[in-house]
């Protein structure tokens, strides 16, 4: 397709515009009719989904602080936000699933920025700048093979990412009885991390069995968060964080080697777990435990 000169381009548009003025149809009633019908359908659709959403709610809970459950279309609301709650599932609204999935793909700390910043920024630049990238003056799809393939590919990629992003963490195995294991499996950690000893299969953050953080690293990460990982200062006490860090350091190091303490840095593990008590306490296996 030969490039048009600026003048040819302008005159082509002016010819088309003049033709449209002379031979077009008036906005009212033709366009107004179509627009009204579609708008009514859209509003009816929104109302319809809302009614279905309402119909699948459970009864108003007697406990004033409880979640009001729902079915397929989700609850009316979950329990009130509380940073002190152990378990959490940071699931975004469906239109951010693609971003959530990118987080899972680029989960190591070094690559994280690719998923969180670099790819979304490139997408936004391409989106806004698209008219300047596609310089082909033809509008017929048969003459726009590159644009057509991009136009088909982008929705496929986005839909795929959205589909995989919508999947909740896979069911893991059974947690061991080691101190800290039950807390790790029941708490926020399991949503994002794989740790064989706790039987968790969360696939958002790094696989701890491979990352094998030492005690100091784990302690700093749980306390302050990093990248997309939240800080759990407000959720856990100091003993609880120390217990989790010790547990992670010890049992991620144990993977792939002979079972036993691999992280000598976790000095006060499992003592901190006993001090934290409750779900954090456990029964260390005498054979393999530290």
């Amino acid at each position: 397709m030969p490039r048009l000169t600026a003048r040819e381009r302008r005159e082509g548009y002016q010819r088309e515009y003049a033709f449209q003025q002379r031979h077009g149809k008036p906005f009212f009633p033709h366009v107004v009719f179509h627009d009204t019908i579609v708008s009514l359908i859209v509003v009816a659709l929104i109302m319809g989904i809302t009614v279905l959403w309402y119909a699948q709610f459970g009864a108003i809970p007697t406990d004033p602080m409880a979640e009001r459950t729902g079915g397929l279309l989700g609850p009316a609301y979950e329990a009130k936000a509380d940073p002190g709650v152990l378990g959490y599932h940071p699931q975004p609204d469906w239109y951010f699933f693609f971003l959530f999935e990118l987080l899972r793909i680029f989960k190591t700390p070094q690559l994280l920025i690719v998923g969180t910043i670099i790819i979304p920024t490139i997408w936004m630049v391409l989106l806004i700048g698209w008219p300047f990238i596609d310089r082909n003056p033809d509008r017929r799809l048969s003459r726009r093979p590159i644009a057509l393939s991009i136009g088909v590919m982008v929705p496929i990629v986005l839909l795929t990412l959205t589909f995989y992003g919508s999947k909740v963490p896979a069911e893991g195995g059974v947690a061991s009885t080691e101190p800290g294991a039950a807390a790790f499996a029941a708490g926020a950690c399991s949503t994002c991390h794989v740790l064989a000893n706790a039987g968790t299969a969360g696939n958002v953050g790094p696989v701890l069995d491979e990352a094998k953080p030492d005690y100091a690293t784990a302690l700093a990460l749980i306390t302050n968060g990093q990248g997309s990982m939240p800080s759990f200062k407000a959720t856990y006490t100091e003993d609880e964080i120390s217990c989790l860090a010790g547990y992670v350091a010890t049992w991620s190091a144990a993977v792939g080697t002979t079972p036993g303490p691999g992280a000598a840095t976790a000095k006060d593990y499992p003592a901190s777990c006993e001090k934290a008590g409750g779900i954090f306490a456990g029964t260390p296996s005498s054979a393999a435990g530290p």
Binding site: E78, K80, A81, V85, Y88, P90, G225, P230
Partner: peptide, 15 residues
């Protein structure tokens, strides 16, 4: 301001 909203926002802001 329910559980899901709270944690999803933290992850979003961290991103």
């Amino acid at each position: 301001f329910d559980e899901r909203a709270y944690w999803a926002t933290i992850v979003g802001v961290n991103i």
